[in-house]
């Protein structure tokens, strides 16, 4: 029995991964996006070994002088902060936080959104009504204020930040995947599967899910990008986790220190990283949009 379930879930999964890789790499923009993403991923994984210094260590230069607000040099490739912290080390370790928050909240939110969308779309009727009204209510919540209030009530920790983002960000994917599920449900092969006596579970996850997969991955990419932007914004507003470094947090420190007038290097590095990472996700999602479904723009 378990092997049967394994077969029905993992075989198509492998096929899907190969297919999706094909979709992304068939598009030049997709290849560029994927390579940037892989680069950031490698930096994030090996961050502690790549960072030359402790991110919260006050640095002294070769002449034993306190290295405060140094512009980029051989010694400090991306310069230092007013407290003498090495920005290059901070940037590398921050990659880890940013990618962690982005991928975890992206994955959980697409899992919730996809399941709610599939179930609402497939069953219709009362269940659909209930789930979609709930989604509507979430749409009435102002996005960033909702997250800020939750973080300030829960406490400023990484897991609560992820929780707050997940709690609201799934709403878009649920709506879109529900719409797609409804249109797939009416196709003949679903009626055929029902006639063969397939269970609802099997129809939803074995027959409908593979057909919404490109859409699902597209929204997974969107959710990751939105989570990253959201995390950066909340950190910049001072609602980040004080124990870890993130790119948004680095910019918050800059704004707080009041050194924006002089320290352009402090601004440049994290900003460029945020933009590059988000653009790489946008490029990947555009590769999907061109192949998967031209009518996706209606969110």
């Amino acid at each position: 029995m378990t092997t049967k379930i394994k077969d029905s879930l993992f075989k198509p999964l492998k096929k899907i991964v190969v297919e999706q890789y094909g979709i992304i790499t068939s598009n030049r923009m997709g290849v560029i996006g994927l390579s940037f993403l892989l680069f950031f991923l490698i930096v994030a994984i090996f961050a502690p070994w790549l960072a030359p210094h402790d991110p919260w260590e006050m640095m002294y230069d070769v002449n034993e002088e306190f290295a405060s607000l140094r512009s980029p040099s051989w010694e400090f490739p991306l310069g230092t902060t007013h407290l003498g912290y090495d920005l290059f080390s901070q940037l590398i370790l921050a990659t880890r936080t940013t990618l962690l928050i982005g991928s975890v909240s992206g994955a959980i939110s697409i899992l919730i959104g996809a399941n709610i969308g599939l179930i609402a779309g497939y069953y219709g009727g009362k269940i659909d009504e209930l789930l979609m009204r709930f989604t509507d209510i979430l749409y009435g919540m102002p996005f960033l204020p909702f997250i800020i209030v939750l973080i300030s009530l829960f406490g400023r920790h990484l897991e609560f930040i992820i929780l707050a983002i997940v709690l609201i960000i799934w709403r878009t994917s649920a709506r879109v995947i529900r719409a797609q599920t409804i249109s797939i449900k009416q196709r003949q092969f679903i009626a055929a599967a029902k006639a063969r006596g397939c269970s609802d579970f099997r129809i939803i996850y074995r027959h409908i899910l593979p057909n919404v997969m490109p859409l699902l991955l597209l929204y997974a990419a969107f959710n990751i990008a939105w989570s990253i932007i959201t995390e950066a914004s909340t950190s910049f507003l001072g609602f980040g986790d004080g124990d870890t470094i993130s790119w948004g947090g680095m910019l918050y420190e800059l704004f707080l220190s009041g050194k924006t007038r002089v320290a352009w290097w402090w601004f440049a590095a994290p900003s460029i990283c945020i933009i590059l990472l988000v653009i790489s996700l946008v490029l990947i999602s555009r590769a999907y949009e061109e192949v998967a479904n031209p009518r996706l723009r209606k969110r």
């Binding site: 990008a225 914004s233 924006t260 900003s271 933009i275 653009i279 946008v282």
Partner: peptide
């Protein structure tokens, strides 16, 4: 696309740093 990928506080900071300061 670049301005969409840049969270507004980055654009805003850049404008402040160049045009204002």
């Amino acid at each position: 696309l670049i301005f969409q990928a840049a969270p507004p506080f980055i654009t805003g900071l850049l404008l402040l740093m160049t045009l204002s300061y």
